[in-house]
Each structure stands twice: as structure tokens, then as C-alpha cells.
Design a protein around this nucleic acid. Structure first.
Length: 565
RNA sequence: GGACCUGUAGCCUAGCUUGGAUAAGGCGACAGCCUUCUAAGCUGUAGAUCACGGGUUCAAAUCCCGUCAGGCCCGCCA
């Protein structure tokens, strides 16, 4: 949205230095430190240089931008005229279509039981990035990889077939009482893992299932597939409850069944002998392991996860190649850094994949009030329980304060999502439900509250939103609080694009919060409904703009708005 | 032992990629503001050796080197 004006400013500045750049600033709309750089080169005073440049370029920009030199900085201020013309364009702005397809994969929880809270950061970040990329008009497909092959699912499938359940005595009441497929699977998972470690016969049967499956035997494949699908069905509901949806579910078994995994192993280790593991060495590319080599397939012939992951990524690469160009993006926990690097290196060096960029958003783990969890022992907290707590808490607070009796769910879920999204993914989070649902300060609820106030304001104006949008107004002599809003509003699409391109949800989160604070200040300082007619119209339009941007911005974060609170 | 990430007021976070203005917010604390559009709000005060030690630079929270602390990985698990 601001790209035209940026280009215009830059073309002026590049007459002085072709590397000139401008940035958003707290002091003005854009700023440049060009004069400091020239000062070094020319050994002159930056203050003087900035003044000279400002004097020379201000005339060419005058219509849209005012240039001021201050202590060596070149500060640019968008004019009233610019705001008058461009603010209404916010309603209809659309990004141009792009010739890049992005395959985004996130969450991909193993189908071994209910999703525990350790995975929620992946889902929330991935969902936000997916929404943002789609909003920026990238051809985006959101994929979920289902691990319906391999040891864990074989263990569960066999335990389920033999009806080996573990008593749930150690589990929380929430888990014991929750009825859904994924919760039904959990006791088999816990029992199966115990048997696998203590019962040789059980272990041998599991190993046999995997071996037969990989050699193409339909029965064990179907057994595992069916078990995985059963569990996945429940997990999907947990995610849909958070309004997190996927375009495609990819099943690991497909790549075993269509022999792509075998092709990968044969390609990487053509000289491999029977009863020996297939292994490769990536040390020449700077990747070291303690034992040197990386195992691709076990000596009994079955593949390890990495081999199947390579086959899966070759499939994704094929999807992109069919489209033309694009990139692969995965949201992964920081524990997958090494594995992703190996995957990427193998694809680049051993499969000559050079035209497609592969990147990942790595996130650090969330510490939920100091608790450590082990899925195998079953002492977990599920995302359903966390969300149910959040909603319950939101409800209690609202009842206590005598607020509207609707929207608990969206407030509770929004609080959790915002608390996670506002923090840089690579930082560890100490999550406290208490803080997320504080409802004051930098929380989703603060933003939702601003939105609800806006809705009432528009309602009381007795002018339809459409009518307000069509008002013709000028931006002269506006209050500072109004100017601050205008300045912030106009950046929305640029921030969204940056957040999307750099995979940084926290940029969007803090932008939206900032807009909400500016609105609260405006609301406090500038009467709308009681202002004189021209001012009222201008302010109403601003209010409708804020509503539009808050709604769209929160939607990118996956957070719902509430009309009344 | 090796790889990667993090360290900013009592607590939590932004800023670091691309060095530049008084280090920006929130929680908590304290003091104000509702006969006027929702006070879940607004205004103000106190609170920071930007982990530590060097280096580069006119200029370092930001770049480089080292140290310390926390996280995470280095499996014929996924």
C-alpha cells in the first residue's frame, strides 16, 4: 500500500547514494540515516548534509510528503492530502497475485493420543503464518503430515488389536472423562509402550508389522492407517475448536505404499547390502554426528523417519514444480533443527534440489507454569483442557465484572493465542494463564474490548457503516490522536506483508495492539458523536477504518472479534 | 566434547537481520480521572551497569572475539 510512496522517496534519495534506504520510525512516518553515511564518506557534518538534501528533494515530493532535516536525520511526514486520498483505499486494497506457491506444513502431531499443550505453539504460529501468507496473496497450501507408519503407530495399533489398555489412574479427571477418538487411543499408547519395553513377544510382533508393511503387505499397512485415521479424527476436532484448519492431510503410508521411500534409500545408498544399515555421511557438507554416519534404513530393511521425510519433501517439491516456482516452509520445534538441516542438505546435495528454497520457523518450547510432561507416562495436559480452563476463567471474570454474557469462548481462546503470538518464536515462553487472561495491558482482550467499543460507537451514530465509508472528508487540522491513528492505519498492509515474508507473527501482534492503544487514547480524548458535523464525519470514518483493520488484523492472528463485551 | 537458540527495570516483552534520535511497551507498585460515545479505559510518578569482559566505529542493546548462565540437539526413536 505504501510501496508507491516509498519508491518515490527512495528515487529522490538515490540521487545522492544508490544504497539509500528508509524505515518506519516512531518520530515520523519514514526516516533515513543517509546523511550519516554521506558524512563519513565526504568527511562533512551530517546535520548540514541532511539540511541540504531536504532542501533539494522537498519540492519534488511536496504533494505527498513533507521532508524535515533534524540533527542529521531525514524525516518524512505524509501530508494531510496523502492521508485524505489514501486512507479510504484501505477498505479495498488487495495484494497483486504472486507467482510463488508456498507449501506450509505445521503442527503434524503424531496420531498417538490427544494433542498436548507442548504442541499448541506450533499450531498457533503455523495458523497465523498461513493466514498471513494467504492474505498477502501467495498461492499458499497448508499441509499436515500424518505419521501413520513407523514404530509408535505400530505399537498403538497392536495394543489396540490385542485390547491392551493401561489403567488411567495417573491421568487427570479431564482426560478420563473426555470422550473422543484421540482420548480413546491414549490408554493403548501408554500400555503399548510398556509392553514394547518389557515383553519380547510384543516387541517382535511390532517389528514384524513394520517390516511387513514396508515390504508392501496390505494388512499391516491398513491396520496402522486405520488406527492413525481414527486418532486423527479426534485431533482434528481439537484444532478446529481453535479455528485452525488445513488444506491437505498427507499420509506417510502413501510414500511407503508407492515405493517412494525405497527409491530414496536406493538413490542414497545404491551399494547397500542385505542385513546392513543404509547410511550416509554428510561431513563434507559440514554436518557432523557423534557417530559420524546418518542411518537411512535399519539393518532389517525398514526405513527410519528421515527416509520417509525425504520422500515426503520430494513430493512437496513436485507440487511446487508443477506450479512453477515457490518455497517450502515448515513450522518446527527447535529440537528439529538438526534434522531439518540434514533433510535440506540431502535434498540439495543428493537430489539436486536447488531451485526451491526450504525454510523453517523454529520455535522454542513453552513452559506451562513450570510443569514437565511425559506423553508416554500419560501425565499430560491436553490443549482441550488448557482451552477449557481459559474459557472457564474468561467466563468467571466476565460474570464477576458484570459484562456481557457472550463471547467467553472467543475471549478465552484469543487470550491464549495472543499470549503465544506476541512473543518471538525462538524465545522460550513461560506461559501463565493468569497473565494471558489478565485482560489489561497487552492482551487479546484489550484489543477485543477496543473493537467492542467501536461497534457501539458506530451503532449509536445512526449512520450505516457503508454510509460512513462513502463520506467525503478532508484531513486538515486533525487532533494528534487522530493523526496517530491515520499514521498507524496506513501501515497495515505493509506490516502484514513483512510479517508474512519474514515469518514473524509477533510483528502483526504488536502492530494490532498498538493500533488498539492508539484508538483507546483517541476515544478518551476525541469525542465522536458529539463533535461538530465535519469533525464527527471525519472521526467516524477513522473509527470505521480502525474497526476494519482490527478485524482483519485479528483474523490474521486467528483471533475472533466480539461485538459487545 | 561439538552445533544451534536465548540473556534488556521486581516480573514479562519490543528493538538486534540493515549500528544513529531521550533504550519502547505491558504486568506489579504509587498518585490522579466516570452528571458526557463501554473505567476490561485514560493520564502521571518511581523503577534499566541492555548477562559479563574485550574489540571495531565519529557513534554499539544492535557488528566481531571471549566468558558465564538457561534452553535444545548430536538414536538402527519419530
Amino acid at each position: 500500500m505504501l510501496s508507491n510512496i516509498k519508491t518515490k522517496i527512495l528515487s529522490e534519495l538515490r540521487k545522492f547514494d544508490e544504497n539509500a534506504s528508509i524505515e518506519f520510525s516512531e518520530h515520523c512516518d519514514f526516516t533515513s540515516t543517509l546523511a550519516f553515511k554521506l558524512a563519513k564518506k565526504e568527511k562533512r557534518n551530517p546535520t548540514v548534509i541532511a539540511e541540504e538534501i531536504a532542501a533539494q528533494i522537498s519540492k519534488n515530493l511536496a504533494d505527498d510528503v513533507e521532508v524535515k532535516a533534524l540533527n542529521g536525520y531525514l524525516n518524512f511526514y505524509l501530508t494531510d492530502k496523502f492521508y485524505g486520498e489514501n486512507l479510504p483505499k484501505i477498505f479495498d486494497f488487495k495484494f497483486n497475485t504472486r507467482d510463488e506457491k508456498i507449501i506450509l506444513e505445521h503442527t503434524s502431531v503424531n496420531p498417538s493420543g490427544p494433542i498436548h499443550i507442548g504442541r499448541i505453539r506450533n499450531a498457533i504460529i503455523g495458523d497465523c503464518i498461513g493466514r498471513t501468507l494467504k492474505f498477502c496473496n501467495y498461492e499458499t497450501e497448508i499441509h499436515y503430515y500424518v505419521n501413520d507408519m513407523g514404530k509408535q503407530i505400530a505399537i498403538i495399533a497392536l495394543a489396540r488389536q490385542k485390547n491392551l489398555k493401561k489403567e488411567l489412574a495417573d491421568l487427570s479427571d479431564f482426560i478420563k472423562n473426555f470422550v473422543r477418538n484421540d482420548y480413546e487411543i491414549l490408554p493403548y499408547y501408554i500400555a503399548g509402550n510398556e509392553y514394547y519395553e518389557t515383553d519380547v513377544e510384543f516387541k517382535n510382533q511390532v517389528d514384524e508389522i513394520i517390516k511387513k508393511a514396508e515390504s508392501g503387505d496390505k494388512a499391516p499397512i491398513n491396520l496402522m492407517k486405520e488406527t492413525a485415521k481414527f486418532c486423527l479424527d479426534g485431533q482434528k476436532q481439537a484444532l478446529e475448536n481453535l479455528d485452525i484448519k488445513f488444506d491437505k492431510f498427507d499420509y506417510e503410508s502413501e510414500f511407503v505404499e508407492n515405493k517412494k521411500v525405497n527409491e530414496v534409500i536406493n538413490h542414497l545408498c545404491p551399494d547397500r547390502k542385505d542385513n546392513e544399515p543404509a547410511e550416509i555421511n554428510l561431513e563434507e557438507y559440514g554436518i557432523k554426528r557423534e557417530k559420524g554416519k546418518i542411518i537411512i534404513a535399519r539393518s532389517n530393511g525398514t526405513s527410519v523417519y528421515l527416509a520417509r521425510d525425504i520422500a515426503y519433501h520430494l513430493y512437496k517439491i513436485n507440487l511446487i514444480n508443477k506450479f512453477g516456482s515457490g518455497k517450502i516452509l515448515n513450522v518446527l520445534g527447535e529440537d528439529h533443527k538438526q534434522e531439518f538441516l540434514e533433510l535440506k542438505t540431502i535434498l540439495e546435495k543428493k537430489f539436486n534440489v536447488t531451485n526451491i528454497s526450504m525454510s523453517a520457523i523454529f520455535f522454542s518450547f513453552v513452559n506451562f507454569e513450570g510443569k514437565k510432561f511425559s506423553t508416554r507416562k500419560g501425565n499430560i495436559i491436553t490443549i482441550d483442557e488448557l482451552i477449557s480452563d481459559a474459557i472457564e476463567k474468561a467466563k468467571n471474570i466476565m460474570l464477576e465484572k458484570n459484562f456481557a454474557t457472550e463471547g467467553y469462548k472467543d475471549i478465552g481462546i484469543g487470550a491464549v493465542k495472543y499470549a503465544i503470538l506476541k512473543i518471538d518464536p525462538q524465545k522460550q515462553i513461560n506461559f501463565k494463564l493468569e497473565d494471558a487472561l489478565n485482560f489489561e495491558g497487552e492482551t487479546a482482550c484489550y484489543i477485543q474490548y477496543a473493537y467492542a467499543r467501536i461497534c457501539r460507537l458506530i451503532e449509536k451514530s445512526n449512520i450505516s457503516e457503508k454510509g460512513i465509508k462513502n463520506l467525503c472528508i478532508s484531513y486538515q487540522n486533525v487532533d494528534d490522536a487522530e493523526l496517530n491513528l491515520a499514521r498507524n492505519l496506513i501501515k497495515f498492509y505493509d506490516i502484514a506483508e513483512k510479517a508474512g515474508n519474514e515469518f514473524r507473527p509477533n510483528l502483526l501482534a504488536s502492530y494490532i495492539y498498538n493500533l488498539a492503544t492508539l484508538f483507546s487514547k483517541f476515544y478518551d480524548k476525541c469525542p465522536v458523536l458529539n463533535a461538530e458535523e465535519d469533525v464527527k464525519k471525519r472521526r467516524l470514518l477513522l473509527v470505521v477504518l480502525v474497526k476494519f483493520v482490527l478485524k482483519n488484523g485479528l483474523n490474521l492472528l486467528g483471533i475472533k472479534t466480539i461485538e459487545r463485551m
